[in-house]
Amino acid sequence: MTPGRRTLDYPDFDAINAEVARLVEGCSTAGAWSLGQILHHLASVTSRVLAAPVDGPHDTSLRVPPERRDEVLATGRLPEGIPLPAGLGQPEDIDPREGARLLREALAAMAAAPGPLAPHRVFGHLDRDQWLRLVRVHCAHHLSFATPTGPEAAR
């Protein structure tokens, strides 16, 4: 695990939005990405889930067995180093406040999506609750690289 990361687990999207608001007030980051890049990535990937076709060709080259999926969902931990989805590339370093807005919008759209949703490129078919959990795990994974330093850090 990258030194300086925190252990996070979010019970819902409101908790993610509250954490992002704290981080926007000031934070340091471990790893290679700034807070703006982290937020841009999370918003982009969450939005892509909603835009992906449910039926049709899907890249299955990274698929893992259902037991691995279940472990990630149960522990809330993603391994470091999973390759970015094709076509996504390095996230743009945007203003963190803009990134927070984009992520809030993506999370709201995800929460409102009735399903079915496209299969995950690594974990395959997920039901709606599994998708919501995976989005929270994905956010916790990336936000764990940011540590609050602003006035809200003590919370």
Results as ranks from 00 to 15, higher is better:
94 I>Y: 01
110 M>G: 09
137 V>C: 06
46 T>S: 14
105 E>S: 13
149 T>R: 07
62 L>V: 12
60 T>R: 15
51 A>G: 13
62 L>S: 15
26 G>M: 02
110 M>T: 12
6 R>S: 12
118 A>E: 12
98 E>F: 07
32 A>Y: 01
143 L>V: 01
71 E>V: 07
45 V>Q: 10
8 L>P: 04
148 P>I: 04
38 I>Y: 00
14 D>A: 15
122 V>C: 08
86 A>C: 00
86 A>N: 06
104 R>D: 15
30 A>M: 08
95 D>S: 09
47 S>L: 00
25 E>D: 15
97 R>L: 09
63 R>E: 15
148 P>W: 00
4 G>S: 12
102 L>N: 06
131 W>C: 05
61 S>G: 13
81 G>K: 02
10 Y>I: 05
135 V>T: 11
118 A>I: 07
118 A>T: 11
90 Q>Y: 12
74 A>L: 11
19 E>W: 06
88 L>R: 14
135 V>I: 12
81 G>D: 01
114 P>H: 14
92 E>G: 03
146 A>G: 07
106 A>D: 05
98 E>C: 11
40 H>S: 11
23 L>E: 10
25 E>F: 04
130 Q>I: 07
33 W>G: 03
104 R>S: 15
65 P>Y: 11
89 G>R: 04
21 A>V: 13
5 R>L: 10
15 A>V: 03
50 L>I: 00
90 Q>T: 14
149 T>P: 08
67 E>T: 14
114 P>D: 15
119 P>K: 07
133 R>Y: 03
81 G>A: 06
73 L>P: 10
152 E>C: 13
152 E>Y: 11
139 C>D: 05
22 R>C: 11
127 D>C: 08
20 V>N: 03
28 S>M: 04
24 V>S: 03
136 R>W: 04
10 Y>D: 11
135 V>Q: 08
60 T>W: 09
127 D>V: 07
121 R>Q: 14
113 A>R: 07
138 H>N: 12
29 T>N: 11
85 P>R: 08
124 G>K: 04
8 L>R: 01
139 C>K: 01
93 D>N: 13
144 S>C: 08
62 L>P: 08
18 A>E: 14
107 L>C: 10
27 C>M: 00
39 L>I: 07
85 P>H: 07
